[in-house]
Design a protein around this nucleic acid. Structure first.
Lengths: 211, 211
DNA sequence: ATCCGGTTTAACTATTTGGTTAACGCCGGG
DNA sequence: CCCGGCGTTAACCAAATAGTTAAACCGGAT
């Protein structure tokens, strides 16, 4: 699996104080959100004095913004490349599912963080995401239309297909605690269950779109 | 459409102080979460003195718990009944999709609220907020197994089918702002798009599970 | 060796915020 | 009329927490 683990960013040396702060802030903000995060906890996790947070990042707001932008900038461009590649449709769908499920499984806090950020700070979110990394679904849509025309798949709205794909990959991580309890599973069983989904979702899709 | 809109609860007269507090708290908690909500803001929105919040609801925790329970109690029991009904499988799936999409469309804040609070305050969520309301999927699973045995649908894991169903219904509301921008749609077009999903998701599922 | 800048810290301040209290008003029963 | 209790309020309190400051540290340049 690629190195998709998110915290690996910008500043100074890879073990500089600034970097340690960023990493700690990333962990705390991503798990607890802007309101739930405490500066002291970030300082403790970074193993440094709280004043250094302000020395390097002025304010909680600024620190949060830095983290939020980094998370967004790391998640979206890869998805975009994947949608715009010239892999044939079936392979593209397969790779997309694999990649997306790996991504959210390896970063279980990512979907909730991104979605919360998208809702609570919409302006900043789209300003960030619109700077060149907005996924362009046109290529994918075109491929679907062609496959329909060729009779390789049944007629369907490619937009709904795309939304279905993303939904089935992202939601299970969002709803994991609920799903786990409803299915009566342990944490380990739940990890297995989520792993199964790569195959299961692909099968579900390919069965659905066949002519 | 049924009256699925959430805020309409318990106490006193429909315009009592207690009710006004509840409504204001509902709005604020749902929009900002437990951590982001401020008691003063709730009081202001209710147009009353902050001390009255404590007079009627003791503490922020209790007030939050009341609101969260009310939200959960309106959504989950119906889902549970739906899964446990003795409708034949195909009809049950169809009704489930219709109901779930109506529910989240009519209460777009609901999924994000439930998921956020479930993650951020897991213990309390499952112990006090959700006590007893857990959906029991056994009946549904049994029906799927029977349908497989009878050859009416292809062999598949009923757990993944259920997760797929919920995912495709709930996620589009969570990701709505993103989906809207990626598809280049207006708010109106987006509402239409989400409305189409009732038919589209059902078709997607039935095509997938057919033998 | 010493000066000097960036770095780091402990202690401090200011503000926010959940929660309390004591007084006031209002209204129905005696 | 007045008494008593529920409802309501302004003012207050205490804890938590973001942010500041002044002094100490430290390594390299002179």
């Amino acid at each position: 699996m690629d190195n998709l683990s998110i915290p690996a960013d910008s500043p100074g040396g890879p073990d500089s104080t600034e970097q340690r702060i960023f990493d700690a802030a990333h962990d705390v903000f991503v798990q607890k959100g802007l309101d739930g995060a405490k500066m002291q906890e970030i300082a403790d996790r970074a193993g440094i004095n709280k004043a250094l947070l302000h020395y390097y990042y002025r304010s909680k707001e600024k620190l949060y913004e830095t983290v939020a932008r980094a998370v967004i900038n790391r998640a979206f461009p890869v998805i975009r490349k994947m949608l715009e590649s010239d892999d044939p449709l079936e392979l593209k769908i397969s790779r997309f599912i694999d990649f997306y499920i790996d991504l959210v499984s390896g970063n279980p806090f990512l979907p909730l963080f991104v979605i919360t950020e998208m809702h609570k700070h919409q302006d900043r979110f789209f300003e960030t995401v619109l700077s060149g990394q907005l996924p362009q679904p046109e290529v994918f849509f075109q491929q679907v239309e062609s496959a329909i025309a060729e009779g390789r798949i049944r007629p369907l709205d490619p937009r709904h297909l795309l939304v279905n794909m993303v939904s089935m990959c992202a939601f299970p991580v969002l709803g994991r605690p609920m799903i786990r309890v409803v299915l009566g599973q342990s944490q380990q069983e739940m990890s297995v269950f989520l792993g199964q989904r790569k195959a299961e979702v692909k099968e579900f899709i390919f069965q659905s779109i066949q002519p």
